[in-house]
Design a protein around this nucleic acid. Structure first.
Lengths: 213, 213
DNA sequence: CCGCATCCGTCGGGATACTG
DNA sequence: CAGTATCCCGACGGATGCGG
């Protein structure tokens, strides 16, 4: 059964927290920022939330108008996705993530979902505006993503693209490590922890952009 | 004893929530946005948090570097105040409040602190840029505040000012009601639920600015 | 297998009383 | 005034069940 407690405070901040302040709620929103996801995908992205709590939160967030539950497109599997109101949380959640960079790392073992790394990548990226436009295909956490570098911006999209300069397959944590130290790219290629197809320098541009140059 | 659970997730968002995601934490931050406050003032502003939980949260937030506990200035009473890092939450908390405006109001009885109304006032205010600069003194929740209207902006400061066009004493909820319907100003004056001294039209400008014109 | 529901143990949080 | 001590309940977390 969903949580029903409230702060009993008419302040907008308190009312916002009545909606998305319960445990795991904002992490679910984080997961849905880039793409709708299924229950099992959310479980994989948030391995530390128990299934009953996840079900509770999803129901709550749906009842309160933050997310929606239904087939995104014709007769696909049922996915959870943000409503228009829920999407307005995006800049807030991203800002919270930027703020949290300065918070201490949790001790191992720590989870790291594909969405987390990609959101970080978008927000931290400072691509060279003079560099050539680049499109990379990413295989991350069992899904395919498209990353576009152009006009001094980095954008992530869920799904395949028709034309990519290169493709990279990695674990989210490995990609995170590479963003902290892009110079380790070749080594990671050699030891097989990542797989690169196509123009390696495109991947290199992505990593250096995502590391803030 | 403070909470020690974690999301065990290296994502910045999760780490931020490890710090300020526990219940009441962000409402404490809200209370400290405008001015440092003492324990008893926080209790009054957050009447629904029990003293032990408040003490726990304050200790946690202090340990994690969000707030500081000490005499703000020479030998005053001990107050809680935001650290530099904690202050970086300000735009996030304000944005959350703006988002929460569209969330349902909690059933009565609902609390409403002076800080809450004043933060809302600052964020919702759209003062007429052509109107004359105005300074109002506010007595709200047992404290004195200074509100300045100038250059199409509204700014709130804690404490007295030397020169004010008018002074208004009210309960936070009453002020909130007036911001929703500024035309009720005279009535509230008459029935004694507020007290105005000085230029009534200055208060009127404040209310209309705070109501988004 | 996916999408939950149920059961149960634990712990965070709420209310009250009390202390330096 | 500024918290602490205590008790209790509900939210949370883990495991398992179970229908589609």
């Amino acid at each position: 059964m969903p949580t029903s407690r409230s702060y009993w405070d008419s302040c907008g901040i308190a009312r916002a927290l009545d909606v998305v302040g319960e445990r795991w709620a904002l992490l679910i929103v984080r997961e849905l920022l880039l793409t709708p996801q299924r229950f099992s995908e959310l479980r994989q992205a948030l391995p530390n939330v128990s299934s009953n709590v996840l079900a509770d939160r999803l129901r709550e967030l749906e009842n309160r108008g933050v997310i929606r539950h239904g087939p995104a497109d014709a007769e696909g599997p049922k996915v959870y996705e943000l409503t228009e109101w829920g999407r307005k949380l995006e800049p807030i959640v991203r800002a919270l993530g930027t703020w949290g960079i300065d918070a201490p790392q949790p001790p191992e073992p720590a989870a790291l979902s594909a969405s987390s790394v990609l959101i970080y990548l978008e927000d931290a990226a400072r691509p060279d505006p003079t560099a050539p436009p680049t499109v990379c295909r990413l295989e991350l956490g069992g899904r395919v993503w498209t990353v576009r570098l152009a006009d001094g911006r980095l954008q992530v999209q869920a799904g395949e693209t028709t034309t990519a300069d290169a493709s990279l397959r990695a674990e989210p944590k490995t990609l995170s490590t590479l963003l902290a130290d892009p110079s380790a790219l070749e080594k990671k290629c050699d030891d097989g922890s990542i797989t690169v197809v196509g123009d390696l320098s495109a991947i290199r541009r992505l990593l250096y952009a995502g590391s803030g140059r």
